[in-house]
């Protein structure tokens, strides 16, 4: 089976939705894929946005690393495809 992937963005396009949830810029976080252990910057994930939610896929193996669904007054974020996020935190306040 081959695939035809001409509909993805990079996960920077998920930045606005993620900023509604997190106080830091998650798109800059180091990300580890739970399927293939590939490490990449979150923004490098392949984003499929023409779907009932946002789906991010590993740029190496194509497996799902995050799913984000936004409803009025509520959001769901599934990160089971990600083993770790390496997040730079603001200090010195």
């Amino acid at each position: 089976m081959s695939t035809n992937d001409d509909h993805h963005l990079d996960a920077n396009a998920a930045g606005g939705a993620l900023r509604e949830i997190f106080s830091v810029d998650v798109t800059a976080a180091g990300t580890s894929c739970a399927t293939c252990a590939h490490s990449f910057t979150f923004a490098e994930a392949l984003l499929h946005a023409w779907a009932p939610g946002l789906v991010g896929r590993c740029p190496a193996c194509g497996e799902v690393v995050f799913r984000l669904v936004r409803a009025p007054g509520r959001a769901w974020l599934d990160l089971r495809g990600t083993t770790c996020l390496d997040i730079r935190m603001p200090e010195g306040r």
Binding site: S2, N4, G53
Partner: peptide, 12 residues
Amino acid sequence: FPVLSSGPTPQV
């Protein structure tokens, strides 16, 4: 007929 998909289109 909008096309929605959560990933690449498989060519089966």
